[in-house]
Design a protein around this nucleic acid. Structure first.
Lengths: 114, 114
DNA sequence: CACGTATATGCTCGTAGGGGTATATAAAAA
DNA sequence: TTTTTATATACCCCTACGAGCATATACGTG
């Protein structure tokens, strides 16, 4: 599990990162909001931490995780080379892309139109 | 293989997409430049095509593949929520610290001081 | 026609990684 | 202390998917 692209390929991990945008969260809070098992949350957080996407601070028995978004810049940088393609003719597309995925956990299902 | 994030998680696919930024390429050209086997290239192209990342036009026995970058906007849109962090993330961190503490009320009293 | 070229696809195999359960660890509450 | 809360980790299973190889398909050239 090396590249940032692998990290964000996992839907639950993306959901966790999205959660942490609003504010830092404890493992338990993430667990409840995303309706995942506690070990699952801990494991994903471990991956995210090892990859530098989040960091944790200890608060008694809890651990509060917060975003460390620098790692995402790798993805952003890679994406940059394609921007010129869609900057030409965006318009209508923007609207429908404002859908944020909320986690239907248990990966597997993805609504993709077409 | 559903989401755009899965598509770009694969390094060879990212390489193919990057190749196609400069101009359209035939399967053989991709094969040679990336030094992958022909079946590997074809399979990745199949995935990319099914996901709408590329399209192909027939040129005799060849197929010329070119970028269809709209699909990448899904990734770009998701990434958007994090951009504010790496522009002004020092301020963001400060605000997080002020908003933390959320109950999981063990018994409902006790506010953490700091 | 036969033959070379270009690409696609089916099959098998190997492995990475996600989920679950149980358990370990640590701190707080009783 | 004992018990409860919060999180981490180890182990096992299981599926997805990428690689390789062989083959199928289709077009071009002689």
């Amino acid at each position: 599990m090396q590249s940032a692209f692998d990290i964000i390929a996992e839907p639950n991990r993306r959901a966790i990162l999205s959660l942490l945008v609003s504010s830092q969260q404890s493992v338990g809070q993430i667990e409840r909001q995303l309706r995942m098992s506690q070990p699952a949350v801990s494991k994903h957080l471990r991956v995210l931490r090892d990859a530098g996407f989040v960091e944790s601070i200890v608060d008694a028995q809890r651990r509060l995780y917060r975003l460390k978004p620098e790692s995402l810049q790798e993805v952003d940088a890679w994406l940059a080379q394609f921007r010129r393609f869609w900057s030409a003719h965006v318009d209508a597309l923007e609207r429908h892309l404002d859908r944020m995925d909320q986690p239907t956990p248990t990966k597997g299902k993805k609504r993709r139109r077409r």
